[in-house]
Design a protein around this nucleic acid. Structure first.
Lengths: 122, 122
DNA sequence: CAGGATCCATTTTGATACTG
DNA sequence: CAGTATCAAAATGGATCCTG
């Protein structure tokens, strides 16, 4: 086992920055988090993620689909049903998202103290 | 050793989403990545991060400072010198950022294939 | 149900100029 | 050097209406 916590000259180039931006933004994080649990329908996601508009949710799902993170499955019923599910590529992100949430949970108190201190100065 | 890859009912609440948004956005990721390596001056960061405007860099540094991720050290020379350095709280993010970069590096090829496929349909 | 199209308000960003 | 101030431009977000 080698140490992997040091950045072995990993650099944030434009393509990496762009990908992370498209996958870690406000809505994508929440959509991926939901879909890692189980597949969901469009309006189901809309109800569970407060409070995303249909426009933003559509845009987010399209971008995640384009990047290969989610799959759009159309069921030809009447009316139409569309299921969104995480892809194998998308699941590679799951541990990272969990790690981000754990980090946020573990450090939220410190962050709030820092904010209070900062706001008290001014 | 317990498994930690499953989300033990960790949920993205508004405060967590807000914090992650403020710390993982386009410019913050790059600033933190630089500062994890070594402290830097304002214009140094500006030169190394292509291509951030002075306005966006100022806003990013202020926000990171407010959240306790970076420290702003003013050296009273003439002209003034300001050094930004990562805080202990900020370093807790380092492994996560490294992990994000490694994920991006490892999966970029698959992502590009997915994009090509998506764009080819239309 | 799952969106597409449109219009408008609010944010965010960019470019420039200026300052202690 | 390390910013602040200002104005214009561009991206984003919300609200509403419409459709297969």
């Amino acid at each position: 086992m080698q140490e992997t916590s040091q950045a072995d000259q990993v650099v944030i180039t434009a393509p990496h920055r762009e990908l992370l931006d498209q996958v870690l933004d406000k809505w994508s994080l929440q959509v991926l988090d939901k879909l890692c649990g189980r597949p969901s329908r469009f309006n189901e996601l809309r109800r569970e993620i407060p409070v995303v508009t249909q426009k933003s949710l559509t845009a987010t799902l399209r971008r995640l689909e384009r990047n290969g993170m989610v799959e759009r499955v159309v069921v030809a019923t009447r009316p139409i049903a569309v299921e969104y599910r995480i892809t194998p590529l998308g699941t590679t992100l799951q541990d990272l998202i969990d790690a981000l949430l754990r980090w946020s949970t573990a450090n939220m108190a410190d962050v709030e103290r820092a904010r209070a201190r900062f706001d008290a100065e001014a």
